[in-house]
């Protein structure tokens, strides 16, 4: 049975337990950073940062809005990156959980193609091994009946893991409640992804790639037709 993770950003305090917990579990090496005038650091996802809490602040009239978005792979139900991959066994989808996994064979794949195929701009490359890197839903932990590390770390009730059907139900119920205070609240691409975000405001106010705007996720067929290229350009320009 496929699994899903519900990320309720209205409960996120950006404590970054998930960001650090993920990194610790994965034993990723440190990334040198600088203070650039924001709490968001590292500035972007990277090969050693597959979970990143994004911060965005807005002043609306007299009200400050500060949004937190724990970004990572959405584990698409029908992953366009898998469709874009030309390396057999490089990108696999675990039948038991639905987790989308990049194996070491992705070293032979083309970053730009794969990243361009992703509506959420997730994939990155390890400069040393050339392997493509992103969140693997902590498949090792799930198989051992443990929670994914980000979900485990979250004490705020902002992350829940479970059967897709249950998680969808939970997400819908929470949306209902949140909408009373925040009418613009929505669930992002809930039918297409396993990592289901609830945001209280327009998704773009959280993060440029919070939601997939194109007919998404792309099917293998549309990918083969080369429809993913505009997305790739978008990702590239954003990467700057």
């Amino acid at each position: 049975m496929p699994k899903a993770i519900f990320i309720d950003t209205t409960h996120c305090t950006a404590c970054r337990g998930c960001q650090v917990g993920c990194k610790e579990w994965k034993n990723y090496p440190p990334v040198p950073t600088k203070q650039l005038g924001t709490h968001q650091n590292p500035p972007d996802l990277g090969p050693y940062n597959v979970k990143l809490v994004r911060f965005s602040e807005h002043l609306e009239g007299d009200t400050v809005r500060w949004y937190f978005f724990p970004d990572c792979c959405r584990h698409c139900v029908d992953p366009p990156c898998k469709g874009a991959s030309s390396v057999e066994g490089g990108i696999i989808q675990d039948a038991a959980t639905g987790a989308v996994i990049y194996t070491e064979l992705t070293a032979k794949d083309d970053l730009e193609t794969i990243r361009g195929a992703c509506p959420y701009d997730i994939p990155r490359q390890d400069p040393k091994t050339k392997r493509l890197i992103k969140c693997d839903m902590c498949i090792d932990r799930i198989q051992a009946n443990l929670l994914p590390m980000c979900v485990k770390s979250c004490a705020m009730g902002a992350m829940s893991f479970g059967e897709r059907a249950d998680i969808l139900k939970q997400a819908e119920a929470r949306l209902e409640a949140v909408k009373k205070e925040f009418p613009k609240a929505s669930l992002l691409n809930k039918d297409e992804v396993a990592m289901i975000y609830l945001v209280a405001d327009e998704p773009a106010k959280y993060y440029k790639f919070a939601v997939a705007e194109a007919p998404s996720p792309m099917t293998r067929k549309s990918l083969l037709a080369g429809v993913f290229s505009p997305l790739r350009r978008m990702a590239k320009s954003m990467q700057g």
Binding site: Q19, V20, Y28, V31, P32, T33, Q35, N41
Partner: peptide, 13 residues
Amino acid sequence: NGPALLEAEPQQY
């Protein structure tokens, strides 16, 4: 001395 912590908040602001 925690690499992931220093990475998230590296400098005086």
